[in-house]
Amino acid sequence: MRARTRTRRGLTHDARSDADGAAAVGAAPSAPTRPGESTARRVLRVKDLLDRDFAGRWDLGSMARAAHLSPTHFRRCFLRAFGRSPSAYLTARRIERAQWLLRTSDLPITQIARHVGYESLGTFTRTFHRMVGRTPSAHRSLGPPPGVPACVVRSASTPHRGAEPTGESSGRVRGGATSGA
Rank of each mutant, 00 (worst) to 15 (best):
F82C: 03
F82W: 03
G83C: 04
R84M: 14
P86H: 10
S87H: 12
Y89P: 00
L90M: 05
L90V: 03
A92I: 08
A92S: 08
R93T: 06
R94A: 02
I95S: 01
E96I: 07
R97K: 13
A98S: 08
Q99Y: 03
W100M: 10
W100H: 13
L102W: 00
L102A: 05
T104I: 04
T104M: 03
S105G: 05
S105V: 05
D106L: 11
D106R: 14
L107F: 09
P108F: 02
I109W: 07
I109L: 09
T110E: 13
T110I: 09
Q111P: 05
Q111C: 09
I112L: 09
I112G: 01
A113D: 08
A113R: 06
R114W: 08
H115G: 07
G117Y: 01
Y118I: 02
Y118C: 02
Y118E: 03
Y118G: 02
E119K: 15
E119R: 15
L121C: 09
L121Y: 15
L121T: 14
G122T: 14
G122H: 13
G122W: 09
G122C: 10
T123I: 09
T123S: 12
F124Q: 03
T125Y: 05
T127P: 05
F128L: 07
R130P: 04
M131N: 12
M131A: 15
M131H: 13
V132C: 05
V132L: 10
V132T: 11
V132Q: 05
R134C: 15
R134F: 07
T135K: 07
P136H: 01
S137M: 12
A138V: 04
A138P: 09
R140L: 06
S141N: 08
L142S: 11
G143L: 00
P144E: 02
P145F: 01
P145Y: 00
P146F: 01
P146R: 03
V148T: 08
P149N: 05
A150K: 10
C151T: 15
C151Y: 14
C151L: 14
C151I: 13
C151G: 10
V152C: 07
V152D: 11
R154H: 12
S155W: 09
A156Y: 09
P159E: 04
H160Q: 14
H160W: 13
H160R: 14
R161Q: 14
R161A: 15
G162I: 03
A163V: 06
E164H: 11
P165F: 10
T166P: 08
G167I: 11
S169T: 12
S170Q: 12
S170D: 15
S170R: 10
G171Y: 07
R172M: 11
R172K: 14
R174A: 12
G175N: 02
G176Q: 04
G176F: 01
